[in-house]
Amino acid sequence: MLLFFKKQQDMKVKILIILLFIGFFLTGCAEVKPWQRGNLAKSIMANDPSPLQSSFRQHNYSSREAAGATSSGATGGGCGCN
C-alpha cells in the first residue's frame, strides 16, 4: 500500500514536471510581437529551407539505419538498398 502510494506520488511529480514544462513553453518566453519577427521570417530561419534536399538525405539515413522507421511515407523494400 505504501509502495503504491509512493508510486502514485512519483506519478504526480512527473505530471507536475510535464505541466511545468508545457507552461514554460506556452507562457514562459518573452513575448515576441508580430513586428519583431523579421529575422524569424528569413528563409534561412525556416525549419526546412531545402525540403527536397533534406528529404533525400533523410531517405538515405532511414534506409541505412534502424532508427529511420518513424518517418512516414514509403521507403520501398527490396534488397537492402532502401
Binding site: V32, P34, W35, Q36, R37, G38, L40, A41, M45, A46, N47, D48, P51, L52, S54, S55, T70, S71, S72, G73
Partner: peptide, 18 residues
C-alpha cells in the same frame, strides 16, 4: 512580419513529408 513566424517551424511532425 506577420507572414512567416511560427509557421515555418510547423512542419516538423513525423507525419509530414517533402
Amino acid at each position: 512580419a506577420l507572414t512567416l513566424p511560427g509557421l515555418s517551424i510547423a512542419d516538423n511532425a513525423a507525419g509530414t513529408d517533402a
